[in-house]
Design a protein around this nucleic acid. Sequence first.
DNA 1: TCCTTATTGATAATGATTATCATTATCAAT
DNA 2: ATTGATAATGATAATCATTATCAATAAGGA
Lengths: 147, 147
Amino acid sequence: MSADQTSQLLSNWKNSLHQHGYRVTRPRLQVMEIVAATRIPLTPQDVYHKSLNLESPPGIASVYRTLEMLDVLGLIQQIHQPGGCHGIWPAVDGHKHLLMCRNCGQMQVIEGNEEITEYIRRIEEDTGYEVDEHWLQLFGICSECSK
Amino acid sequence: MSADQTSQLLSNWKNSLHQHGYRVTRPRLQVMEIVAATRIPLTPQDVYHKSLNLESPPGIASVYRTLEMLDVLGLIQQIHQPGGCHGIWPAVDGHKHLLMCRNCGQMQVIEGNEEITEYIRRIEEDTGYEVDEHWLQLFGICSECSK
DNA sequence: TCCTTATTGATAATGATTATCATTATCAAT
DNA sequence: ATTGATAATGATAATCATTATCAATAAGGA
């Protein structure tokens, strides 16, 4: 994620806090900066440990509280990984699927999902379910790592 | 899952333990019976609490150890749910996708995934990744629950 | 600048999972 | 069927992540 993409994201997030009546505080900013800048999914613990490098790091409780708030506001999303654990990641607009390099951890957003829409339509016919949500995540090796 | 499907599964699992040099013990059988018979994903705690109804229930540690063993042997798989937490479920042969009713929790295995194969081929072309694993899970309301 | 109150940080409480280790039970060999 | 080596168990302690508590602090509207 490039530097100006990150600051764009941060700016949007701050607006969202204001709009929903949340105060913009230093601990929240510290957490948001870390999450907005990450290129790999982070756990709450990851965020906390990264924050310890900062001047006056937020308390562990504020890290959890801020992540909870970002989640409620839909600004981050959970990522499910082969290791079994979750990580968080800035939420992607619309419904996009994610591709993650199992070597370097880098995430990539996939554009277009017509095939999946078609697939789901067929499943609904076959099973009688109303499918209202789906998760698709792809894992592999990115072109950098496969060199 | 029907009664004879369950006993078929159990029988396969016991064979697998023998083949890999694991002893077949009562605590293991108790855990395996619970997991093989479930119609919804279970957490380790779920399994433990269900086991407490039994005559001489296994210790909590044995529940964890048995689930770990079943996972290593590839006999169960993890299910990722909207709530954010994992559950376990008997592993499905081949690569099948799962559909879960968000009301009753019931799981359904989906046959055929040509659309997904096609989708992944396109992603590989677009991104330069080698995609070697993918997770797709669908959530919705089953025909029973939507009545 | 003041004042209300949302937020923080330190820490206690909770809950899940893992590690430890003496005792028990499996199962291959006899 | 019995024996014996040792894998496995169960009770519990240790660890680790997450949540709750509450007095002190700071954001931001008046």
